[in-house]
Amino acid sequence: MTELIHILINGHAVTVKPGTSIAAAVLNAGTTAFRKSVSHVPRGPVCGMGVCFECRVKIDGIEHQRSCMVLCSEGMVIETDV
């Protein structure tokens, strides 16, 4: 069996299978608001392939990363709604 990966989503510890994108992990954790739009309404992933930029989150302190294009790796810290 492949080992599970441990990450933090908004301070909560979450375990995911290898190959899981950050976008999928965040949705599985029950969070649908990934970012706040220019007029402060919640948005989430649309295209799933790196085009729309609606799935942006903060990954390990770096803002505006496309969560659909990055796979979870051990110890990652993810923050949404920024």
């Binding site: 299978k17 994108s21 608001a33 919640p42 799933g48």
Partner: peptide, 16 residues
């Protein structure tokens, strides 16, 4: 949120 593309939703399912 949760209004997505067709291939878009599939891509997310494929990534977990």
């Amino acid at each position: 949120p949760n209004v997505m593309g067709v291939g878009g939703l599939q891509a997310l399912v494929k990534s977990g």
